[in-house]
Design a protein around this nucleic acid. Structure first.
Lengths: 247, 247
DNA sequence: CGCGCAGTTGACGTATGTCAAGACAGGTGG
DNA sequence: CCACCTGTCTTGACATACGTCAACTGCGCG
C-alpha cells in the first residue's frame, strides 16, 4: 500500500495510519517531528544494554535486530525490525535498556527525541494510543516467537519466520509479487530461531527441497503461499494488521 | 512492601505506585474503578484466543498463565501472572485476543471494563503512561523468556524462572523470608520452559541436589539467593522494578 | 584473480524427548 | 480414622533432533 517515503517519517505515519486512521492534523504533527537520519553498515550496534537513551529509533531501510546474550555468550535475537518499525519505542517509558539493538544488514535509521514524542502524545492522546498499540504488537510478536522457539521443530520454526517476514514486509509494501529481500546470514537466522547455524543450513535445504521457498542471493521467493503457511503453522492474527474495527 | 489489600484494586494501585508514584487524586480514581471479582478453580479458562473482550483481567490471588497451542497440540505458556498483574491489559488496544489466559492455581481475579479504564486514562494522562509501562514490562519479560527458552539449557532455565518468580512475588510482598508459594504442576512448568515434564522432574532433582532450591508441597525455599541467581544467570534489570529515576 | 566470509557436508556427541511402569500424596467417602 | 483413588511425580530404557567440530566449497568483493 505505501509509496516510497518522501520524508523519513512517512514510513512510520503510513504504518500507524493503516491500522489506526489519523486525522490530517495528527499526520501533520508527526510529519514535522524532527528526525536525525543515520546510515549504518551491517552489524553495527544502535543502542546497547544498560543505556538510558533519550531518543527512539525508527527503521527506514534495511533490517535491524533486538538481541541479548546469555552468560555463555550465546546470542538470542528476539526481534527483527523492518522499515516503519520502532525497535525501542519502549524506551519512552522504560528508563534503562534491557536489550541491545543492532543493524543486521546495512540500513538507514532515524532518531526521534523522547521529548518530542512525549510532546505530541500529550497534545494528541490518540497518538499515545497509536504508539502504545505499536508496542503491544511487538509484544504479541514476542509471544508468537516464544511459541515458535519453545514448541515447534526447526523446520516449522523456519517456515513460520519466513511467513512472518513475508507478511510484515508486504504490509509496508516491500514485497514484490512472491519474493522479498532478506539481507540476513544463516548465523543470524540461527540466533533468531534458537538453533545452530549448521542446522539452519540443513533446514533451509529441506524447505527448498520441499519446494516451499527458493533462495537466491539474499532474496527469498515463495512459490506457494498456502503451502508455506501450512508448513509454518502461520496464522497472521498475532500481527494485528487489521485495525480495531475490521473483521 | 504492600499489606493485604483492603479493596480489590489496592494490589494494582500499590504496584503502579511503587514504580510510578501516583498523586492522591489518581490513587482515589483508581480505587473507585468498578471491579467484578470472581473466584476460579485451577485450570479454568479466563479469556480465550479469538475473543474480543470488553474488560481487562486483574489477578488478585493465585497464579494465572498466558498460553498458546501449536498445531501439534503442544502448549507454550508465555507468561505467568501473580497478584497485582493485569495479564490482558493489551486487550485495551488490540481488539482480538491472540492468546488465551487461564488460571494455574485456584485464584481470584477482578475484571475492569475497558471503557472505565479508557475514561480514567483520558482524564489522567499520567495513568495512561503507568498502564502503558505495565505492558512494556510484560514485553520485557517475554524477551527474557525468549532468551531463556532459546539459549539456555534446562537447568539454567529452571533456575532462572525460580529467580524471576521469587523476585516478582517479593515485589508484591508475597514471599516469606526465603520461601514462596508456587502452586504449579511440573506439567505446567514444562510448558513454560519448553521442555518435557519428565525432564522438569529430573532438572528439579538436580537443583535440589545442588542445594539451590528446596521444595515441599507447592512451596519453594531458596537456601542461597546468590547461588541460585548465578545458576540461573539472573539479572533483575529486565523486570524494571525501579522507577524511572532510580539508580 | 584471489581473498575471505558465508554456506555446505559428514561424522559423531549429547541434551532432551517419549513411553510405560511404578511410587507417592492429598483429598474424598465410608 | 482408615482406605481408596486420582492426579502428580519419579524412574529406567531407549529414541532422536539437534549441536559441535572441522574440513571443504563457492561466491561476492576488491
Amino acid at each position: 500500500m505505501p509509496e516510497p517515503p518522501p520524508t523519513p517519517n512517512a514510513r512510520m505515519i503510513c504504518k500507524l495510519d493503516s491500522i489506526f486512521p489519523l486525522s490530517e492534523e495528527e499526520r501533520q504533527v508527526l510529519e514535522h517531528l524532527p528526525v536525525l537520519v543515520k546510515r549504518l553498515k551491517a552489524d553495527q550496534e544502535i543502542v546497547s544494554l544498560g543505556e538510558r537513551p533519550q531518543q527512539c529509533c525508527l527503521v527506514l531501510e534495511g533490517l535491524t535486530c533486538v538481541y541479548k546474550l546469555s552468560y555463555a555468550g550465546r546470542r538470542q535475537i528476539m526481534a527483527l525490525h523492518v522499515p516503519g518499525d520502532m525497535p525501542d519505542l519502549h524506551s519512552l517509558h522504560l528508563a534503562v535498556m534491557d536489550i541491545s539493538i543492532a543493524s543486521v544488514s546495512s540500513c538507514t535509521v532515524g532518531f526521534i527525541q523522547h521529548e518530542d514524542l512525549r510532546r505530541v502524545c500529550e497534545r494528541f492522546p490518540r497518538l499515545t494510543a497509536a504508539f502504545w498499540r505499536e508496542t503491544l504488537v511487538d509484544a504479541s510478536i514476542y509471544r508468537e516467537w516464544l511459541l515458535n522457539v519453545g514448541q515447534r521443530d526447526a523446520y516449522t520454526r523456519l517456515a513460520h519466520l519466513m511467513c512472518e517476514l513475508y507478511t510484515r514486509l508486504s504490509a509496508v509494501g516491500l514485497t514484490d509479487e512472491r519474493t522479498f529481500e532478506l539481507p540476513i546470514t544463516q548465523d543470524e537466522l540461527a540466533d533468531t530461531l534458537g538453533i545452530s547455524a549448521v542446522h539452519v543450513s540443513r533446514t533451509l535445504q529441506a524447505l527448498r527441497g520441499d519446494g516451499l521457498i527458493e533462495t537466491a542471493r539474499k532474496r527469498v521467493t515463495v512459490p506457494s503461499w498456502s503451502k508455506l503457511q501450512e508448513a509454518g503453522e502461520f496464522d497472521p492474527l498475532y500481527l494485528h494488521l487489521q485495525g480495531r474495527h475490521a473483521a
